[in-house]
Amino acid sequence: MTDTTTLARTGTALQPGEGPLPGEHYLPTRADEVHWGWLPHRGTPAVLAVPDGATLTVDTLSHEGLLADQGRDPARYLAQFGVEEVLADAVEVAASPLVNGAQDGPHVVTGPVHVEGARRGDVLRVDVLRLDRRVPYGFVSNRHGYGALAGEFPEDLDSAATRHVDAIVRDGTVSHYAWVEERDGRDVGLIDAGGGRTVQFGLDPFLGLMGVAAPVDEPLPSVPPGPYGGNIDVKHTGVGSTLYLPVGVDGALFFAGDPHFAQGNGEVALTALEASLRATLRLGVVRAADRRAVLGAAGGPVVETATHWLPTGLHEDLDEAMRHAVRNAVAFLHGRFGVPRAVALAYLSAAGDFEVSQVVDAVKGVHCRIPKRDWAAWA
């Protein structure tokens, strides 16, 4: 039988300030600046100010291994899996007096960043330029009462595949340790399946949480996404993508967190492969006057990749989230290209792919993938 504590752990941890920092500005995750489980609002002081169009390298920090049901001691928790090099900012946040209880979201939220010249009514354009793994490991967790099968899973709180090494986790949580190895010329994630077997899957990193401050006076919980972005968990926001966020307050007050190495649409267990990333982003402002030419009349977050546009729909009810996504996709095509709304709906029925982003964040998400090639002649 293969012992998970002796399996290869490749790679060196990217500690705060070490290694490549390609952005013009650098933002580490500091315990005295982050928001644990809550999102910044319009009254939150910015921790950094950058010009319109600046590039920013930010060290995002996964919450897995830091949480109370994992002992709130990442060095001790990770030692079970043979991990010796733990991120210093993970240790700092977990040991800090920051409160993170049952009523708080789990996410370590870094920011906010004031973007000079951004005004309410504008759109913040976030170009994802680079995503570097800070560690060669992460976790996929299922916490009792959450996930697509809440009340059915966890079926086995002893989790035979993992509990032979994972002795610290408690309170009805099953956390599957995953590690990164190179196999057949590519990096993959692996999970212990018991009996000396492993489950393998591809990696496609992205930040699950990027957003701008909502025009409210109190912090919002970090779990549900909203028109300001936040925890949208759209897996297509990887390197080369752009996320468009409606600006609700002057300066935008951008924030980021919830880094993932991989996620399937739906994120059904509760978490993706949660693991810390160093993200390099470009933050640019689309003026209100130019918004229609970019986003049409779509509201809420919109994602753009090299091949697709992805309007989103968000709602507590999945059926209503789907309706919101359809409305936003129609509004995108009608507003940007002037195609009649009835024709836009017919086109989407023939060629638009509606995918469930996630069903586990209280507010559920659906995104529509619109192929750019179909609209090349309309540009």
Rank of each mutant, 00 (worst) to 15 (best):
Asp3Leu: 10
Arg9His: 10
Gly11Lys: 04
Ala13Lys: 05
Ala13Phe: 03
Gln15Thr: 11
Gln15Cys: 02
His25Asp: 07
Tyr26Phe: 05
Thr29Leu: 08
Arg30Ala: 14
Ala31Pro: 04
Ala31Met: 05
Trp36His: 01
Arg42Asp: 10
Arg42Tyr: 07
Gly43Met: 12
Thr44Val: 08
Pro51Val: 05
Pro51Asp: 11
Ala54Pro: 03
Ala54Val: 08
Thr55Pro: 03
Leu56Lys: 06
Gly65Pro: 04
Leu66Phe: 06
Gly71Cys: 06
Gly71Arg: 06
Gly71Thr: 01
Ala75Tyr: 05
Arg76Cys: 04
Arg76Pro: 02
Leu78Met: 12
Leu87Pro: 08
Ala88Gln: 13
Val91Tyr: 00
Val93Tyr: 08
Val93Cys: 03
Ala94Ile: 03
Ser96Thr: 07
Leu98Gln: 01
Gly101Lys: 09
Ala102His: 13
His107Val: 00
Thr110Arg: 01
Gly111Met: 02
Pro112Tyr: 09
Arg120Tyr: 00
Asp122Cys: 01
Asp122Thr: 05
Leu129Ile: 05
Arg130Ile: 07
Arg134Val: 05
Val135Pro: 01
Pro136Thr: 09
Pro136Asn: 14
Tyr146Pro: 05
Ala148Leu: 13
Leu149His: 15
Gly151Asp: 11
Phe153Cys: 11
Ala161Gln: 12
Arg163Leu: 02
Ala167Lys: 15
Asp171Ile: 01
Asp171Phe: 08
Gly172Tyr: 02
Ser175Tyr: 05
His176Leu: 14
Glu181Met: 10
Arg186His: 14
Ile191Lys: 09
Gly196Gln: 11
Val199Thr: 15
Gln200Trp: 10
Ser222Pro: 04
Gly226Met: 04
Thr237Leu: 12
Leu243Asn: 00
Tyr244Gln: 01
Leu245Gly: 03
Val249Tyr: 06
Leu253Ile: 08
Phe254Gly: 06
Phe254Val: 08
Pro259Asp: 06
Ala262Trp: 01
Glu267Arg: 15
Val268Gln: 14
Thr271Met: 03
Thr280Gln: 07
Leu283His: 04
Val286Lys: 08
Arg287Gln: 13
Ala289Cys: 11
Asp290Asn: 10
Asp290Glu: 15
Asp290Trp: 06
Ala293Glu: 15
Leu295Ile: 06
Gly296Trp: 00
Gly300Ala: 00
Ala306Glu: 15
Ala306Ser: 15
His308Glu: 14
Gly313Thr: 02
His315Asn: 15
His315Gly: 04
Asp317Phe: 10
Ala321Lys: 00
Ala321Gly: 07
Met322Tyr: 15
Arg327His: 13
Phe332Glu: 00
His334Gln: 13
His334Lys: 09
Val339Phe: 07
Tyr347Phe: 14
Leu348Tyr: 09
Leu348Arg: 06
Asp361Met: 13
Val363Glu: 06
His367Lys: 04
His367Pro: 07
Ala376Arg: 15
Trp378Asn: 10
